[in-house]
Amino acid sequence: MANAANAPRQKVVISTRVDKVSTGARLTSSFRATIAVIVALIMLIPVAWMAMTAFKTRPDAVAVPPKVFFEPSFEGFVSLLTSRRQLTNDEIAVYQQRTDLGWADQIALIRGQAITGPSAFPRQLLNSLIISGVSTVFSVGFGVLSAYAFSRFPVPGKDDLLFFILSQRMLPPVVVTIPIFLMYRQVGLHDTHIGMVLLYTAFNLSFSVWLLKGFIDEIPREYEEAAMVDGYTRLQAFRKIVLPQATTGIAATTVFSLIFSWNEYAFALMLTSDAARTAPPSIPLVLGTGGIEWAAIAAGSLAFLIPVVIITFLLRRHLLRGVTFGAIRKG
């Protein structure tokens, strides 16, 4: 179809008119798309497997060979979200007669258990949300401010300070778990929300300052200077001009900070026990009576995954858009 008259004069790689895109470019791009889809599928297999396991019964979850087709069940979720008591045979007989049981009770009853109350998991999930949410807001908020300062002002010893900030990242965090544990015990931050927020903010801040500085450096100063000449203070110019330009960077930093503090395991295990315990150290500990509750663990992981997916999905437009340089003319 690429006859001489119709073919574009130059090689066109992207166009809304399909007939204007050279055959080679089209093949390359569909080849690339195919590869991307295959890679994505491979990456998604464990997630899909986890989602499937969450809806399996205990025998299905440990079946050999693994079952791809199965009868879905909420057993995993019930054991994740409730605490239960093993019934004696007599009690089971009594329970089976009762008509006032809810669907969750009935699921528990299949395994000869009675629900005694909610489990700690919902509260742990809430702790995770609070701690990682607040620490993300802090690290992005402080990060934007200090990145702006580093980017625009002649801060004395700027390079040394920036290196010092970066060097915080060079230390493997696990190394300091014991000292921090002891310190937190001393000052009463052990097992508190504030303690965890402080810790995660400290860990994320160095990263977010560097990431955001890169983005803010790309925003020409002329924008703010124009705004300042136009009758705004620096802070107003920052809010009205710089922040809207930095949304891409802020979105990216938010997602990274959130994922870090959301997933953090080692410190959470050491520094929290009850009141401020987050989800990651708890999920593997969903103990059933006898044997590992794979379905419950998978259900916990699934519930744990959802907030991050939602946030990333909400911010995807900013994450994908990349940096636009707007209407600047390069002189």
Binding site: P220, E222, Y223, E225, A226, A227, V229, D230, I241, P244, Q245, T324, F325, G326, A327, I328, R329, K330, G331
Partner: peptide, 12 residues
């Protein structure tokens, strides 16, 4: 009022 050399209109 300042008209900049390398002018930047507010892009958003």
């Amino acid at each position: 009022a300042f008209v900049f050399q390398q002018y930047s209109l507010y892009p958003n």
